[in-house]
Design a protein around this nucleic acid. Structure first.
Length: 585
RNA sequence: GGCGCUGUAGCUCAGUUGGUUUAGAGCGCCGCCCUGUCACGGCGGAGGUCGUGGGUUCGAGCCCCAUCAGCGUCGCCA
């Protein structure tokens, strides 16, 4: 057979005798003096190539180094018996190099490309092209591609249309801060980059597309935080004439399809929890259902307690919440101190613990706990001898539950119950419509102001808005909020009322949202949808713990691109063109 | 923005109570040897303002203060 260009992962025993041409990078070289082996790597795998001393190219091969780029031609031959490498797909064969072409040399890399060692992340980001050359990142980005392709295939089969929405839109300063882009053509005015295509996709429903999806890039100028990027990707979906169930069914089926095609896993039906139930059992609106450890209300046990911390919390309308720690009786005081410290970081004022040892009960609040208290607590928490019980009290019940919920995750982690290869999806539904903003004391939408209230509750916006529930739902995976969605307002007048309730003046409503409310007046169909965080989804599917490891070119924690060095200053002339002047703080 | 942790060779890290010579190891890098390795092996070598600035001390990689950077965490994220 003639020479055939092939990948470095393709050759097998039956290819023996073929002439092959390979291109790739030097993954490793093993120089035996009289014989040189090189592992040649490309996107597809690794093939061993051999330089024999009688060959004219042997002298050149002696000077080859890691990451040099080669093109080689030669015969495929079986390796001598006993020297096959079972750990390599191509391990039965090798290529005896007849012709060597060095396509490019590589400088010595700042870290080893051929190993998945730990490397300082900023160094990885500075030399991202070398980092992306490594196995782990190659694999992650290929999984990401397959997930996104599966999403598109799924929605295509259901007759959704992918429609691109603009990146340069109008600033509507509600919620997150906008990234602004100055207009040169209209000095003194600005575009905003989309925080999400929310209003545009709703307008596409008004336009009659009926089923829309987009793999959409979103930008939010928020403060930096560990697992946040200034730009991120969403699977954005919107449908007309649909109910909440329709959206949930669609998105759940999509996840099932993605997991099946990409990971080969069958997902069970997603449990549905009401917001109330999620808080009561798990303390959080994003419960990790890979493990049980449900919380329990212990307030009734301490109604008459002498313990001032509990009593004052309860008298102020607060709560005492109990969390079982399986096997926790064997923890040391030091361990309990560490847990208490963790609870403080989560916003607790403190934590009371009980260790239910076989030799008796120890507790940080022993002198305040009667025997009857302990018996009742064991029953309430479902704890047995050998366990510990952790108690969290706060005058604000939602805070007591939130802390207990975060500690539940902590305990689950310590007990090894958060297996990253397990995928526990669920839905949380029936969120409150409004919540009170702690900073401003004003009502704020629990989701966003385009959400519709629960059936029959439209009038409550005038009479008792705090009682309203929203047709709003979250998809949760392993304790992460993957995304949320809602059935939307499609009635212009109600939409206007919502904005007023949120404290906007008529002028503000007109200026910021006038075009949108007007669109609703022209026969807007009932509609709803959802957006899922693709970065986070891919992260969990890859078993990674940082979204940066599933994004090709992420910013670092300070939101800098350390490879390109962005953001950066611009020439004075560029500023003048835009009518901008920098005011140094 | 608050808090915590980290910063020592190209990379990943060790470095005792503040004092033993020239601050170490593994990998990488350079040179020599090696014909069946695959994390090849053997021998030798280069490589360090201990993040930066100040302070305490007879003496600082180690203690103190400031600062910078990175990571983590909380606030924030309609």
């Amino acid at each position: 057979m003639d020479k055939v260009r092939t990948s470095c992962g393709a050759l097998r025993a039956p290819d023996e005798g073929r002439r092959a041409e390979l291109c790739g990078w030097i993954n490793r070289r093993r120089d035996h003096g009289g014989l040189i082996f090189v592992d040649l790597r490309d996107r597809d795998g690794v093939t061993q190539i051999v330089f024999d001393p009688q060959n004219a190219n042997f002298r050149d091969a002696e000077h080859l180094r890691h990451e040099d780029v080669l093109k080689v031609r030669g015969n495929v031959r079986r390796r001598p018996a006993g020297t096959e490498n079972v750990r390599l797909a191509t391990g039965e064969v090798e290529v005896a190099v007849a012709e060597l072409e060095i396509l490019n040399r590589s400088a010595v890399p700042p870290f080893q490309v051929n190993a998945d060692d730990t490397v300082d992340e900023n160094l990885r980001l500075e030399y991202r092209y070398l980092d992306l050359r490594r196995n782990r990142m190659q694999e992650n980005l290929r999984v990401r591609h397959r997930i996104v392709k599966a999403m598109r295939d799924f929605f295509d089969a259901r007759e959704f249309v992918e429609i691109e929405t603009p990146m340069l839109i109008k600033s509507t300063p509600e919620g997150a801060r906008d990234y602004l882009v100055p207009s040169r053509v209209h000095p003194g005015t600005f575009y905003a980059l989309p925080q999400s295509p929310q209003m545009l996709k709703q307008i596409l429903m008004v336009a009659g597309f009926g089923r829309y999806m987009q793999i959409a890039r979103c930008m939010r100028d928020e403060d930096q935080r560990a697992d946040r990027q200034p730009e991120f990707t969403q699977l954005d979906v919107e449908m007309s004439f649909c109910t909440e169930d329709d959206v949930l069914e669609t998105m759940e089926s999509c996840m099932r399809y993605v997991w099946k095609t990409v990971l080969g896993l069958e997902l069970a039906a997603f449990p549905r929890l009401s917001h109330e139930e999620a808080i009561a059992k798990y303390g959080l609106d994003k419960p990790d259902l890979r493990f049980g450890l449900e919380l329990s209300d212990a307030g009734f046990i301490f109604e008459d307690t002498e313990f001032v911390v509990f009593r004052s919390a309860l008298e102020a309308g607060g709560a005492v919440v109990a969390l079982r720690y399986p096997g926790g009786a064997s923890l040391s005081r030091r361990d309990f101190d560490a847990l208490t410290e963790a609870a403080r970081e989560f916003g607790a004022k403190g934590m009371v613990w009980l260790a239910l040892g076989s030799d008796g009960v120890k507790s940080s609040a022993a002198k305040f706990l009667s025997d009857a208290n302990v018996v009742a607590l064991r029953a309430a928490a479902g704890a047995e001898t050998g366990d510990a019980i952790l108690l969290f009290a706060d005058p604000r019940p939602e805070l007591a539950y939130a802390v207990a919920g975060k500690m539940r995750n902590e305990v689950g982690q310590r007990c090894g119950m958060r297996d990253p290869s397990q995928y526990a999806f669920c839905w949380v539904t029936g969120f409150p419509y409004l919540e009170v903003d702690e900073a401003t004391g004003k009502p704020a939408p629990a989701h966003h102001p385009f959400t519709a209230p629960a059936h029959g509750q439209w009038d409550l916006i005038d009479t008792d808005p705090q009682k309203m529930r929203a047709q709003h739902y979250d998809m949760v995976l392993n304790g992460y909020e993957l995304g949320s969605g809602s059935i939307r307002n499609h009635v212009a007048e109600f939409q206007r009322k919502v904005f007023k309730r949120l404290g906007l003046s008529d002028e503000q409503i007109e200026d910021r949202f006038g075009f949108f409310i007007e669109a609703l007046t022209y026969g807007a169909p009932p509609h709803g949808g959802m957006a899922l965080g693709v970065d986070r989804l891919v992260m969990l599917a890859c078993g990674e713990t940082s979204i940066r490891d599933v994004i090709a070119f992420p910013k670092n924690q300070a939101f800098r691109d350390v490879m390109m060095d962005a953001p950066s200053t611009v020439p004075e002339q560029s500023l003048r063109d835009l009518g901008l002047r920098i005011v140094t703080p």
